[in-house]
């Protein structure tokens, strides 16, 4: 774990660059993390990111299927918004933990 400056703000991140405290997040932090992933955030991205944060706060395990059925975004569009690995990239931008299995 280390402290880094993102969008002028000191935040704690883990070794993979995920925020360790989702309360240190704001939209400016999101934009800068997104930039590193070559993603320019628009309103749809933000809608998805806020949904993920809200789900995370309720303690729910996120998976792509649930997001696809949420009515917020379908799976194909989710991939288009966050190319490559939508859940891991969107989670990083949303300041929430990386989705992980047990190992």
């Amino acid at each position: 774990m280390s402290e880094v400056l993102i969008a002028g703000k000191a935040v704690q991140v883990n070794e993979e660059g995920y925020l360790t405290d989702m309360e240190q997040w704001d939209e400016a932090v999101a934009c800068e993390i997104a930039e590193e992933l070559n993603i320019v955030l628009g309103p749809k991205h933000m809608e998805v990111i806020h949904y993920l944060r809200q789900q995370c706060q309720t303690g729910k395990t996120l998976n792509i299927r649930r997001i696809g059925k949420s009515g917020v975004v379908d799976i194909k569009s989710f991939y288009k918004l966050f190319p490559g690995g939508p859940l891991k990239n969107a989670s990083k931008i949303a300041g929430i933990p990386k989705p992980a299995s047990c190992i």
Binding site: N63, I64, K88, K98, S101, I103
Partner: peptide, 8 residues
């Protein structure tokens, strides 16, 4: 569907 065979 995960980011790799190992995620931790």
């Amino acid at each position: 569907p995960m980011s790799g065979a190992f995620t931790k």
